[in-house]
Design a protein around this nucleic acid. Structure first.
Length: 427
RNA sequence: GGAGAAAUACCCAAGAGGCCGAAGGGGCUCCCCUGCUAAGGGAGUAGUACGAGUGAAUCGUAGCGAGGGUUCAAAUCCCUCUUUCUCCGCCA
């Protein structure tokens, strides 16, 4: 949610900032509603003040032995009018709230306008691997090495599901362990959140009400629960409706969770195997900061995510996303795109974003400033660190050898009993 | 899943339709006394959101877990929900 005053003060300027996202938003009707709201509030509060005043007098009049029937009748009428106006106000407020909740975040000023085509690669690590043999894609590799069972995954849970088996499970787990150890060394606190979250979590994160269909809703759970699409959705709600002291910030967390996404209507046919599934593993970095701290925090988190991929020795590029390609809740996003040889494209394994105060406003998460003791909204930031299930296929493809084996990166070996190489299984 | 109890300000806690924005403690802040890591006395201590006003002050409205309802008037009565605790059952 953005600051309403921005719209009140200069709707044209805000409209222009949204145009960078490719969204033309007309605030005329909203501003009328906003005026209407103020009018009703003034009226209804005057009436309530009157009612409070007279109600306080009634017991005194009674004590004095006066007849209060007439006064009570008047107050009854006033009460009815108040109820009517309150209902009207409720409706207006609801419309205002809905409008604001559906507004995306304002993109940072320095972002290029437009969509994907205007994303800018700003850093590259390593280079495209070259093979003096016919390289396999990750699906073939995972099968021949006995790491993934796609068929039985589909048998159990349908298209878009797979099962890690044996060394495949070990490798996935090794990646997670590597990420976890790295983040812990940087002073981030490990969190394991619930996977089933209440509706308000989605509201704060910015997924709801606009993108309710992107997640799995739990039909017979108590309350309005859904399966989290990322640990961010949980972590961003940790301090919902709370006020922290400035000295407590920044708060640095990372969480692991399986992530569940419907991916309805996705490009699954061109994305074989584990590139896009309904369930995948991801470690997520998260920070709560003051506005002054958030730029530095963003750089730190991008750096950590890049560091992980570099530690694995995988070729990737870092892209600064154009305004229209940032997700709705985010003011700026950098993607780490890892190279997938079989597709000859770069695929996102990490998305680092600064939401600024957008999520904090939705979740009412504030801090008290030292300087003037006033309350202000925190900034929230997140970065995948990393999506294991995207790194896995890139790793298989980039580190495959002519004999069909895959070399395990140095940093993962201690998590796999020192194993250096995974070799094809004999049938 | 079944039965019961509870939710009040930073913390503990009173409160049972109007005199309650809320007694009393504790803590914290300031002041006095004393004088020196003790004790005593006094004062202050909802924060917040919204509206009006404005450099400010100030006024109003909401707010006793949340949301509804009854009433001229609700912390107080009624309904729904959430959370916590105790007991039983079941289970990793």
């Amino acid at each position: 949610m953005i600051d309403v005053n921005l719209i009140r003060n200069n709707p044209q300027a805000i409209r222009e900032r949204y145009l960078k996202r490719g969204k033309d938003i007309d605030f005329t009707a909203f501003l009328q509603l906003d005026e209407q709201r103020k009018q009703i509030i003034s009226q209804v509060e005057q009436m309530k003040a009157q009612r409070n005043k007279v109600s306080a007098q009634i017991p005194q009049l009674k004590k004095a032995g006066q007849d209060v029937a007439q006064t009570i009748a008047e107050m009854k009428a006033l009460g009815d009018e108040i109820a009517k106006q309150d209902a009207e106000l409720g409706k207006v407020n609801e419309q205002i709230r809905d409008f604001l909740l559906r507004l995306p975040n304002l993109p940072d000023e320095d972002l290029l306008a437009g969509g994907k085509e205007n994303n800018q690669p700003i850093y590259t690590y390593g280079q495209k691997p070259t093979f003096d043999f016919q390289p396999k894609d990750h699906v073939e590799l995972a099968k021949s090495l006995g790491l993934i069972d796609y068929e039985r995954g589909a048998k159990l849970a349908g298209n878009g599901s797979w099962i890690y088996t044996g060394l495949g499970a070990r490798l996935e787990w090794a990646l997670l362990s590597y990420f976890i150890d790295s983040h812990d060394q940087k002073g981030y606190t490990f969190m394991l959140p619930p996977y089933m979250l209440g509706y308000d979590c989605g509201l704060t994160a910015g997924q709801f009400p606009k993108f309710e269909d992107d997640v799995y809703q739990l039909a017979n759970a108590e309350g309005n629960k859904f399966l989290l699409p990322t640990a961010e959705t949980a972590l961003v709600n940790y301090y919902r409706d709370e006020i922290l002291a400035e000295s407590q910030l920044p708060k640095k967390f990372y969480g692991y969770s399986a992530c569940f996404r419907r991916e309805a209507g996705s490009y699954r046919s061109e994305e074989r195997g584990m590139i896009r599934g309904h369930q995948f593993n991801k470690v997520e970095l998260f920070q709560y900061t003051t506005p002054e701290q958030s730029d530095a925090a963003f750089e730190e988190m991008v750096g950590m995510a890049c560091g992980l991929v570099e530690g694995l020795g995988l070729h990737f590029q870092l892209s600064k996303l154009a305004a229209g390609d940032c997700s709705d809740s985010m003011a700026r996003t950098y993607d780490i795109e890892i190279y997938i040889p079989s597709m000859d494209i770069y695929k996102e394994v990490s998305s680092a974003s600064n939401a600024r105060d957008y999520q904090a406003r939705r979740g009412n998460m504030r801090y008290r400033r030292e300087s003037d003791k006033k309350l202000d909204y925190m900034h929230t930031l997140n970065a995948s660190g990393l999506a294991t299930s995207r790194v896995f296929p890139a790793l298989l493809e980039q580190f495959q050898n002519a004999d069909g084996s895959v070399t395990i990166p140095e940093v993962l070996r201690k998590y796999m009993g020192g194993l250096e190489k995974i070799c094809p299984v004999k049938k």
